[in-house]
Design a protein around this nucleic acid. Sequence first.
DNA 1: ATGGTCGTTACACGA
Length: 259
Amino acid sequence: MLIATWNINGVKARLDNLINWLEQHSPDILCLQEIKSVDEAFPRAPIEALGYHVETHGQKGFNGVALLSKSAPISLVRGLDGEESDEQARYIEGLWQDGARALRVASIYLPNGNPVGTEKFDYKLRWMARLEKRAKQLLADEGDVVLAGDYNVIPEPIDAKRPDAWLGDALFQPESRTAWRRLVNLGYTDAVRAATDAAETFTFWDYQAGAWQKNNGIRIDHMLLSPEAASRLTGVGIDKDVRSWEKPSDHVPVLIQIG
DNA sequence: ATGGTCGTTACACGA
């Protein structure tokens, strides 16, 4: 079972790249973030033509998440509980039957939170607390859970080429990193970090200032696995090559194989 | 070095 996550930064602008990538890797489930599309405008047809089911949770202009899957989910959850007034589309969760097992996969687009010291940063921290609550609930089922997406958190200094440059940024604030650790410490495994301690294991390179050419990247796209999913983990990868494609997203796909 | 580059949208904004 191949599961992947990719912040695609605009699904309409990235449709050719998405189709090419699906044809190359043929994942069982792909979590997308920043589709920047309302549900009605999502380019379903060419994706369905490849044999995928398409479930979206979009909004106009910004944010938006989706789940593409070869088999149809049994059930879906759109949005995170805990804040009635929150209208930002950042969470979609599906449940699949994988042989004898149930598999739950969420596509997460965690708030960026910049600038620090504003309502945007408070919203990020509130959203992380809401995610922690949901993540805890999901562990109670003792099933396979994969929480995948753009967390907008740099967990540790090793996860940035230039950690000093991120000290004032919401992605690397002590509060953001603490909230990340709280999530992991519930009992989740950071799949990429479990697979490698290597430096310069990045998933995002800014469009600006030649960040890609300088490998000035950060690791902010993560896949958190429940103990049951982690015990089945047989492979982890970051498809760095995609960043060198024409008209790339600023993020690249992260993949896991579970047996 | 307070710039730089994208996507979506509508004449900025979020990242």
